[in-house]
Amino acid sequence: MSAGAGPLLETRGLTLRAGGRCLLQGLNWRVHAGERWCLIGRNAAGKSSLLRALAGLGVPGRAGEVRWAGRPQADWSAAEAAAWRAWMPQQAADRFALPVRRLMELSVVQPGADADPLAVLAALDVAELADRAVTQLSGGERQRVALAQTAAQGAALMLLDEPIAFQDPTHQGVVARWLAGWAGERAGRAWVASSHDIHWVGRAATHVLALWGDGRWRAGPVAQMLDAPTLQSVYGCDWLAAGGSWLPA
């Protein structure tokens, strides 16, 4: 399934409300192959709600339209949607003590559509856990396995809620490098992820979508979005440039 030259993902007037509050108002936005988008904003600004809406999952108070490959979400069957977009929640909820290897096998939607799932585990530094039960993993290990599961789905678009949660600095770098290699215009793939780590966002993303949590939003390339005025406005605190990165003052 191909999007041709058009966007992989598009929103038209997307509005989200929760608890009597307007989180997002009139989002008109496009994601093209090769782009790596990070969502930034304070807690409860609507990042997770937006990712759920983009994935076609239930979100209260939603209005507007989301399109995948030029088609409205509602026009996609469940099987088509699973082959087009992959969703990684903020934290996995494991009910059964399945081995990681079996979990990866069950995550494949399009056999042969991507690299060997075990190779993905190796790239994310969790190959040695293949025979361990998922219920025996640390938080960081489980998060990297979840990312590998998402990739194994074989979709063109990955939607990732806090993919570097619980990661130490070494593995934050591992995830950033792997995600940079995974998305590509030639491969016809892109991802959208949320993160609170602005340093990591600067390393991993090509574009940023900032949410203020009161309806306002702004989107653009990383170089235009990660500056002191924008970060101060989004987070409500001062920021300092340090070694090519940004740190809260």
Results as ranks from 00 to 15, higher is better:
F166E: 02
E128S: 14
E105H: 09
W182C: 03
H196V: 11
T150Q: 00
L24M: 10
R177L: 15
Q232T: 13
Q91D: 11
C38V: 13
F166D: 01
W217K: 01
N28P: 02
G26C: 04
A93L: 14
A79T: 12
S2K: 13
Q91N: 09
G173S: 07
T15I: 04
L157H: 01
P221T: 06
A204T: 06
A69R: 06
R218D: 09
L24E: 00
A190E: 03
Q110I: 09
Q224R: 15
H207N: 15
L124P: 00
A3W: 00
L124Y: 01
G19P: 08
G140Q: 08
A183V: 02
A155T: 07
M88G: 02
R52H: 12
P99V: 04
W191E: 01
L147F: 08
R203W: 04
Q90C: 12
A151N: 01
L247Y: 09
R218G: 07
D214V: 07
V234R: 00
V100N: 02
W217V: 00
P163N: 11
Q224D: 15
D75G: 12
G213D: 07
R186N: 04
G188A: 08
A33Q: 06
A45N: 05
P72R: 14
S48P: 14
G70V: 13
G243V: 14
Q172Y: 10
A242E: 15
P99G: 04
A180P: 01
V100C: 08
A223N: 14
D94M: 07
H171D: 09
A78M: 14
R67S: 05
R102E: 15
W217E: 00
P99M: 05
P248Y: 03
L121R: 02
A155P: 01
R218I: 07
A228R: 14
M225N: 05
D197P: 03
E35T: 08
A146I: 02
A228D: 07
L137P: 01
L209N: 02
G13W: 10
G243A: 13
R132D: 04
G61R: 06
G13P: 08
